[in-house]
Amino acid sequence: MSNARRGTTNGAPVRTEGLTKVFYDENRGEVRAVDRVDLTCRQGEILGLLGANGAGKTTTLRMLSTVLQPTSGRAWVMGHEVRDQPERVRASLGFYSASTALYPKITPRETLRFFARMNRYPARQVDERVEELVRRFRIQDYADTRVEKLSSGMKQKVSIARTVVHDPPVLIFDEPTVALDVLNAIELRQFIAQLRGEGKAILFSTHIMSEAEQLCDRIAIIHHGEILATGTLDELREATGLHYLEEIFVHYAQVDDPAQAAEEQLR
């Protein structure tokens, strides 16, 4: 990474500056899904993106992972700008969400090998890395069984292994526990905490307050596409004088009537 790039990102693996995404909808016209978002995620940190459904969390993360192009603003991942060097950005991160499923017709071992190769893991070390993950995630027993025949818990393990197979310094988890049962959700959160211990920069989006409280080092509250506040839980408590994250969220989002807000969200 060049010094110039380090300067741009201030040394943080992930940084955004005025990141904006505007969609055009035939019925609603221009929709500002993400509005001038400034974020920074440091090494060895879990930054939680907390917001209701439709707040702009997924769109923000999709721009960071280069699936979507920003309408304006900039974002860097490991010093690579998302618009200028999308392949390098993608090689530097692992993306996990409910919409990133596995290929049903291939086996976990084939899956890991494919994603390692495509994400630029050194070719000679691919097999070694795959076997390491097979052991680490304890998937030896079904490593050569087609994914379509695995249980959802098994698939989840393979999916996480797929996300980290190229050993990326940045990881994005977009509402990862949304379709999981309690035990699998706990296991996933434990694994994410382990990754933080390994020095990864982790962006974690959720609408579940308790999850954000337990796992995140810092929390960014996003509502209607805008970041309303960012800080540690203690900082947010101090700033608002409120104890529970749910109350803090309602305070920032200025939601007087949650039922009415949910109705608006649906519209």
Partner: peptide, 14 residues
């Protein structure tokens, strides 16, 4: 339909 499209879009290839 398999929800693998986005997985594919996150590969580090053009």
């Amino acid at each position: 339909e398999r929800s693998t499209w986005e997985t594919l879009m996150t590969l580090a290839v053009p």
